[in-house]
């Protein structure tokens, strides 16, 4: 019975000719459910964020009114905004090249024969599947002054303890180290796949010509890995703006905003200070940054696509 029902629902007999207009109706019906949700949670909020950023915050006495670029003026005079923006820039600069370099090293290390290779690969990849919030919980202990893991090693080696997360000078680097740890293994798998796709003849030819390993890597392998590097680069840049979970556990953006990042500041502005209109202006900055990245990706990747 189910089978006949199934045939009735899915395989009703149709004539051999289908009118294009009817096909279009089918297509629209197929696309519609996803499109409605995407509009409701991506396009509409994007537009309403931009509109909201042009209005003032409404209070009981004074309703919200159009104020043009006033929120943006406030933003440009807000030292915390500049602080989180530069922090985000340093965060991106500090984590991305390091994790990409480490990812390549890891991929090269596990690409050759090695006792316990799958274990090593697993060790590199495991941080990727752990939630950032759990990772932060573990690393919080590492960074605890005096009794934490890092300070214990430092003291054992003759250095003095340090409040890594409490000192504005070390808090951002400390968070960067953790982020690199989290992301390098994820990027490694893309390099691993790409390296395995390089024809072995290249290496053979290079060896016959007397090229050393470093030369082979620099002049042959690395250029061939360029599309992977670009892909990873864009992912890494996006992550550096979107991933702020660890701040909730590690620092809450402190001390004195030394580790605050743009998205976390948006969260604080909207949900701790309830300045939603100002938060909208901050979100517009983030949206513009991402749009620039998207366009960059579009033009750069399109030019490099012949590498694939």
């Amino acid at each position: 019975m189910y089978r006949s029902l199934y045939i009735m629902v899915f395989c009703t007999k149709k004539g051999p000719m289908q009118l294009p207009s009817k096909n279009h109706v089918h297509a629209w019906l197929l696309v519609m459910p996803a499109a409605i949700l995407l509009i409701a949670f991506t396009h509409y909020p994007t537009v309403s964020t931009v509109i909201k950023s042009l209005f003032s915050k409404g209070t009981a006495i004074r309703p919200s009114r159009f104020t043009g670029l006033e929120n943006y003026q406030q933003m440009f005079q807000d030292p915390i905004f500049w602080k989180v923006l530069t922090n985000n820039l340093w965060f991106a600069l500090g984590t991305i090249p390091t994790s990409i370099a480490l990812a390549i090293v890891m991929a090269l290390l596990v690409n050759r024969s090695l006792p316990g290779r799958s274990l090593v690969r697993m060790a590199y990849f495991t941080p990727t599947i752990l939630p950032m919030i759990a990772v932060a919980n573990i690393w919080l202990f590492f960074y605890t002054p005096d009794i934490g893991f890092i300070d214990q090693i430092a003291v054992w080696m003759g250095f003095s303890g340090h409040n890594w997360l409490g000192d504005p000078a070390t808090v951002l680097p400390a968070i960067m180290v953790m982020t690199v740890w989290k992301e390098a293994g994820f990027f490694m798998i893309f390099y691993l796949a790409a390296i395995q796709n390089i024809p072995p003849e290249f290496r053979e030819a290079a060896r016959l010509e007397g090229a050393g390993r470093w030369y082979y890597f620099r002049r042959i392998m690395f250029p061939l890995l360029m599309p992977t590097t670009l892909f990873v680069l864009i992912n890494a840049v996006l992550n550096s703006f979107k991933l702020v979970d660890h701040l909730f556990v590690l620092t809450k953006g402190g001390p004195d905003n030394a580790s605050n990042l743009l998205l976390y500041y948006i969260f604080e502005t909207a949900f701790s200070y309830f300045e939603t209109h100002y938060a909208a202006a901050l979100t517009v900055v983030l949206l513009v940054l991402l749009a620039v990245l998207a366009l960059g990706q579009f033009f750069i990747l399109d030019k490099r696509v012949h590498y694939r």
Partner: peptide
């Protein structure tokens, strides 16, 4: 299905790859 405007609609959908819901927390909450 090559319905009219499918390229534009597809491109509009791909915007979500960049602007993920995390970024629009404030408006989505509303």
């Amino acid at each position: 299905f090559a319905f009219p405007g499918h390229k534009v609609v597809f491109a509009l959908m791909l915007i979500q790859l960049m602007i993920t819901p995390e970024i629009l927390i404030v408006e989505n909450y509303v």
